[in-house]
Every structure is written in structure tokens, then in C-alpha cells.
Computed example of a mutant assay.
Amino acid sequence: MLLRPPALPRLPDGPARRRFRSWRRTRPFWAGTLLVLGGTELLVVPLSPVTVLVSLGLGGLAALGIGLALIAAGLFLWFLPSARHYVSVNALILSVLSFAATNLGGFLVGMALGIAGSAMGFGWTPRGDRTLAVALPAVLLTALAGPSADRAEAAEAPPGRPGPPVTASATPPSVTASRFSPHGFTLAGVSRLPTAEGRLKVIVLKMRAASLSDYRLRTRDGRAAGQLGLGARSLELRGEVTLHLTRFHGCLEGLLCLTFSPDTLPAPPVIPPFVFMTDVTAEQALVTADTITADGLELRALPGA
């Protein structure tokens, strides 16, 4: 004869529990919980013994900053749900950046929790269908698992569009801008661009449009000893915009400064919307767009270096 274990007693449904349940249902509670857990996981390794922290260097310090920011974002979702869209977008940016800026995003665990929490927070609604809140984390995590080789291959031969019809300069001009705002931004990968002196390894960035403020380009003219300078108060790129860069440096939303090159390209393919960068410097091998509009355009000869 089998003996059934006694049933565990249920906790009484008292007034405090009912108030908490009612409070929880009026805000993206579980989204905030995932962000708090993700931020806490990013803090675990840097807050271990001092010898471990020293060995981590800047990655450990970045983990402290991003971890605390994700915990703060989770608290905002709990206590200020009206700001969930703005908070979720910024939390998503930090979660993706944690892969390149910290210890692989807390060995992927903290990054995955942050992405899932921010996506759930963005898709949460006070009542009604919660499909968006559930589907967004799955879509983003699936995109993160996509192979980078496919992106690089797409950069070599974009479907339906021929490669650049012109040969790029073997020595890319330098570009600076006070602000760079891409729209519909995707990270296409790494490609090799033909030049007069062979193929040049470049980062390929694609987007629907881009805005640059205080645009300055400085290039060496191959037929003369001097340099040419091109400047504009603003530069607007529209249509199928493609940038080929050998180096890119900028501060994400004016906070976190990063430098990318074809050999140090971050792995995550997901670039959140509404991203902008300040204090941008780059080496621009080639740029193509359907339309390019400049305000306050000027071109002048500069003395040789």
C-alpha cells in the first residue's frame, strides 16, 4: 500500500498578500525582477576578492557600473512604471554592451537576464494581451545566437545589390562628428574593400538613415602633397546607407566610450533603436547612400602634415 505524503499547508491569503498581488499586477514586476537579477549577476565577479578585481581591470569596473545601472532600471520598473519604455530601451543597450565591455556579459547569464527583462518591460501593458512582452525576449535572444559568419557573408555580397562600383582610397580619410545618430541601424559584419593597393579590411555598417552634427573630414590627396578638408554643420544620409570603416570610436549616449575595428568587432548583432554616439572619430574608407544632404558645406585645402 502506497502512502501519500501529507499535503503542504497553503499560506493564508491575508490582506498584506492581497495588497502585494494587487500592487504587482499594476507594473512590470517580473521584468524589473529579471533586471535586478541580471545586474546582481554582473556584480558577483567584480565584488569577489580584491585580487580577482585587479585581474579584471577595466572590465571589472564596467561590470560594476552596468550592474548597478541594471538594478536601478529594475527598481524604476517597479516604482515608476510610466517610464518603462525609456528605461527598458536604455537597459537593453547596457545589457548588449555588457558582452563587449565586461566579462562576456557575466558569462552570458547577466546579459541574457538583462535583455529578457528589458524586452518584457518594454512590451508590458497594464491589462490585456501580454504576447508582446513574452515574444520580445525570445526574438532578441534568438538573434543574439545567430552566427556571425552569416553576417560577414552578407556584407561581402548583399542580396539584390551589387558591391561598391568605385575603388576606395588605400589610406582612409579621418572623420570627426560631435554626434552620430543612426536610424534602422544593423551591424553587417566585416568585409574586404578593393583599393588601388589591394583589399582593405573594413567594418560594414548598414542603416536606413543617419544624421551627423559638426561633420569634419580630412583626407590626403594622392596627386598633391597637401590635404583636403570637408566640413558641414550637419550631414543627413538617407536610403540604403552603408559605411565602410577601418576604425570607429565614440561615446554611447555620451556615457560609455568604445573603440571598434575589424579585428575587435563586438559579437552581439542586436543594436537597439534610439542609439546615438557623441565625440565620434573614425577612419572612413567609403560611404554610400541614396541621398546625402549637407548644411553649411565647405571644402578647403589644408597644409600637408
Rank of each mutant, 00 (worst) to 15 (best):
P6I: 01
L8S: 12
P9T: 05
R10T: 04
D13T: 07
R17G: 12
R24Y: 04
R25C: 06
R25V: 02
T26Q: 13
P28D: 08
P28Y: 11
P28G: 10
F29N: 06
L34F: 09
L34S: 06
L35R: 01
E41T: 12
L42K: 08
L42F: 05
L47Y: 02
L53T: 07
S55A: 15
S55L: 14
L56T: 01
G59R: 13
G59T: 06
G60A: 08
A62L: 09
L75A: 13
W78R: 06
H85G: 00
S88Q: 07
S88F: 02
V89N: 01
N90L: 11
L92T: 03
S95G: 15
V96L: 15
A101W: 04
T102A: 12
N103G: 04
F107D: 06
G110P: 13
G110C: 10
G114C: 05
A116T: 10
A116N: 07
G117F: 06
S118Y: 02
M120P: 05
G121C: 10
G121V: 08
T125F: 09
P126L: 08
R127N: 05
T131L: 15
V134M: 15
L136T: 08
A138V: 13
A138D: 00
L144D: 10
A145K: 09
A145T: 14
P147F: 02
D150R: 02
R151H: 03
P158W: 00
G160F: 00
G160S: 00
P162R: 10
T167H: 12
T167K: 12
S169Y: 00
A170Q: 08
S174G: 14
S174K: 14
A177T: 14
S178N: 08
F180M: 14
P182A: 05
H183V: 08
V190D: 07
V190W: 08
R192L: 11
R192E: 15
L193Q: 09
L193G: 09
T195S: 07
R199C: 03
K201E: 15
I203F: 01
L205R: 03
R208V: 01
R208M: 04
A209V: 03
L212K: 03
Y215S: 06
L217F: 03
T219F: 01
D221L: 09
A224T: 07
A225Y: 00
L228T: 05
S234I: 08
L235Y: 02
R238H: 05
L243D: 02
L243H: 07
H244T: 05
H249K: 11
C251T: 12
L252K: 00
E253Q: 12
L256V: 10
L258V: 14
S261I: 10
D263Y: 04
D263Q: 14
A267G: 07
A267P: 06
P272M: 04
P273E: 09
F276Y: 15
M277S: 09
D279V: 01
D279I: 01
V280Q: 12
T281S: 13
T281L: 04
D290V: 03
L297I: 11
L299Y: 01
A301Q: 11
P303M: 06
P303E: 14
G304P: 13
